[in-house]
Write a protein that binds this DNA or RNA. Structure first.
Lengths: 294, 294
DNA sequence: CGATAGGTTGACTAAGCTCAACGTCGGTGG
DNA sequence: CCACCGACGTTGAGCTTAGTCAACCTATCG
């Protein structure tokens, strides 16, 4: 069963005799021998290297795998951080509940992604990781991994901060997007990003399935679900995408990217200022108008 | 000259014979002998430990200090990441330019803060670090620091990711704040956060000076400068704070905190749901209204 | 002492939120 | 098998918040 081959279909997983209990607590499987090496995702899986490293050094690294049905949580907000979770197949949303009952979706995760990298520093999970479809997740006991000594420990020393830093930059970008752009830019950027991430995993970037609800997208982007829906409809009406419920087709990648362009950080501020005044086709306002009224 | 003693006054720094050139490039001073140990900030300075560690192990660690006048940059967006910068005195804004000429302020930094922790993974600085007042910054050559071996290298291995992870969580919080709350909550949260950070550094949490412009605050919070101004005026009219230009007095901390309460992540989602329906005094709408029309 | 940057306030506008109605799909139970 | 239900998505109407534009004031700095 190859999780990379299918286009936008959910992989058919076997759920019958799973080695995890009903309450979905993360119970480590005892002593799989280098399961990461056998994993189809191995090449693209970031923390596989961690696992390898740890495995090579000490036999005590606890590693395991779990299958989750749509809607189940890999871990919950408030849980102790005991494992490093990696998505093997399927997709997740990372969400945390607000005091007033609403929830905020802080990220979406695909195969190969580390679930909540920020949890590494904190003692407890800030987010819950909820499967958006039937999914498969690997986990490595965190403590045992960090205790690993020797040559391969260098991987930990260098890969982990790098991963965190990358996540941090990603987070800053999203923040900027939400703080400084209008709904259409946010949605377009989100779709392009999702498309790109699918492409990186061998799926078609131009035709795919959104695994999350409009509500999830809205929460992620700081928009109401209605606005997400409307904006997508508007992009559809423009002919830039085709939306049919959660099925999505990208028709005008160039135009979508152009729409997001202003929201990207420029290079040297001075240089930015130069190109900002010169060859810009039309101010943002105009573009938004034409989008919503075409 | 003690940078911690003065209340809200800018520390009087001597700029006459500074060992950094006019273009403000980060030129390392040669071989100060453990300057971090002599630093008044040492106890509260996070990366001082890094420096110590590195210093103890290899004499080749390049470390230095620079003084910056208000408006000058410790580094610029696009610069190669060569040094780890730490604020010794004064304050900074971290900003990056957008392609359309606007700028986004991603963070503010105070004494003891690491400037742009996210830069550690990336080869180049994503932000410029601009002094909001005359300031003093320490820097350590990054490469030489990472090459340090031995016992104290453990500090690097553990402190750095922890710092990054903390920053990541902070960033997520801010994102949530911006995505899900109204202008008054954002401003109140910002003021409380600023106040708290000053308190941590020994300043009064109830009376202080904002070092950044309304524009900076707005950019940081995803608001226009006018909205920031108006919101502050409204809080003032309510008697919760006293604003006079950049001078600020906190009068009703409790009420301010209450205003932000809903925006905080709850504990267990289930528990959250329970308290959400019961003892909540008034829905958000009401509160916002009363704030703006009192 | 004028120039300039920053702050406040007002009037108007518009982007996006809320409320509501309606349609579709998929699951579940009679 | 069909009817019902709940979750999700779409679309419309009206309203609210915050953005825009503008005038004015003050402090600061050459």
């Amino acid at each position: 069963m190859d999780y990379l081959s299918g286009q936008t279909q959910s992989p058919t997983l076997d759920f019958s005799p799973t080695p995890c209990d009903v309450r979905m607590r993360a119970v480590p499987m005892p002593a799989l021998e280098s399961p990461c090496l056998a994993c189809k995702q191995h090449a693209s899986c970031l923390p596989a290297e961690f696992a390898d490293a740890a495995q090579n050094v000490s036999g005590k690294v606890l590693i395991g795998r779990r299958r989750l049905r749509k809607g189940q949580d890999a871990f919950r907000q408030g849980d102790r951080v005991e494992y490093l979770h990696v998505v093997r197949a399927g997709s997740f949303k990372l969400r945390f509940g607000l005091r007033d009952g609403r929830e905020h979706v802080s990220a979406f995760a695909l195969a190969g992604d580390l679930l909540e990298p920020g949890a590494i520093g904190t003692g407890r999970h800030v987010c819950s990781a909820t499967a958006l479809e039937d999914a498969d997740v690997c986990f490595v006991a965190f403590e045992s991994l960090m205790d690993a000594r020797g040559d391969s420990a260098a991987l930990l020393r260098e890969q982990l901060p790098a991963q965190l830093a990358r996540e941090l930059v990603r987070s800053q970008r999203l923040l900027m997007l939400i703080a400084h752009t209008s709904a259409d830019v946010r949605v377009a950027a989100f779709l392009l990003h999702w498309s790109q991430r699918l492409a990186e995993r061998g799926y078609s970037p131009d035709e795919f399935q959104l695994r999350m609800s409009r509500n999830d997208i809205g929460s992620h982007l700081g928009l109401s679900l209605e606005t997400v829906s409307r904006t997508m409809s508007a992009l559809d009406a423009r002919g830039w995408i085709v939306v049919e419920k959660r099925r999505l087709r990208v028709r005008r990648r160039r135009e979508l990217a152009q729409l997001c362009d202003d929201a990207l950080p420029g290079g040297d501020p001075l240089f930015t200022r130069e190109i900002a005044v010169a060859p810009r086709a039309e101010p943002r306002r105009e573009r938004a108008q034409s989008l919503l009224e075409a």
